[in-house]
Simulated assay, not measured.
Amino acid sequence: MQPFLSSIDTWIFDLDLTLYGPEANIMAQVRDRIALFVERYFQIGSDEAHVVRHTYWKKYGTTLGGLMAEHQLEPHGYLDFVHDVDMSLLQPAAGLRALIEALPGRKLIFTNADAPYAERVLAARGLDNLFEDIFDIHRMKHMPKPTPASYDALCAELAIDPSGALFVEDSAHNLAPAKALGMTTIWVNYDAETDSSDTEHFVDHEIADLTEWLSAIHSLESTT
């Protein structure tokens, strides 16, 4: 593993399933809230609502994208509803905070969620007031990752030189546009059985745990 700290000046983190693990069950709650919103919006049954949710997600990248494109939905109320989830399973992560805090340079969040929800997640994890900025779905003009234009907007608005930036994500396909821009890419792959052979051209490093990996690179740098 090559030293990172001297070559990276901007550390970009995804939020969900990157700054916490799948055991917190947050995303399952969000998916259920999305389906419930769809059920009520269209006055349809639960099973049909999940089909609509999944169909829009596959076609537009998010269910919200489909609702906006095909039904002119106003996004703020939708996001407030689907993000009204129980954060109690998220535990403070003092070790992770210390490791991120010790990284040299800028620390940013790049998320398909909105900033108010991201702030709640960060607070629950004890990671609040740690990141310079949260580049959220509204600032992406509701074009979610992996839409390349949103990566361009992130870099332009926040004056990021991609060659000195590192992006950490749990969704491998979201790393492809970052790699195309010249970022170093880190895939947090919680499923050790997932075949990663088709990601080799845009994933620089595959890890299983963010805290362990950050600890390792800090240790590596201290001995070089």
Rank of each mutant, 00 (worst) to 15 (best):
L220M: 12
L154E: 01
E157W: 02
L210E: 10
M183Q: 10
G126Y: 09
I160M: 10
G45S: 14
K179D: 00
T111A: 01
E23A: 13
A178T: 00
T18R: 06
H138M: 06
L5E: 01
K58C: 07
E101T: 01
P144H: 00
A35V: 08
A69F: 07
L130E: 10
F37M: 10
M87A: 12
T224K: 09
F42H: 11
Y41Q: 04
A115W: 02
S171V: 15
T184M: 14
A165C: 04
E132I: 00
Y78A: 04
Y41I: 03
L19K: 01
T184I: 12
K179L: 07
G45K: 11
L130Q: 13
L17Y: 09
P144V: 12
T223V: 12
M27K: 03
A49Q: 07
A118V: 04
C155A: 06
L79T: 07
S163V: 13
R120N: 04
L220H: 15
L181V: 09
M140C: 08
P22H: 02
L210D: 09
R120H: 12
A153S: 06
L73M: 15
E39W: 09
F13W: 04
I160R: 12
P162K: 11
L220F: 13
W213Q: 09
I207R: 03
Y151R: 09
N129T: 07
A192R: 15
N174Y: 03
Q72N: 14
R97C: 03
C155V: 00
T194M: 08
P75A: 00
G65I: 13
S219R: 13
A94H: 11
E157V: 00
M140W: 14
T224Y: 10
L96I: 01
I217V: 15
N129K: 14
S219H: 01
I186L: 14
E39G: 11
I207A: 05
L64T: 11
M140R: 09
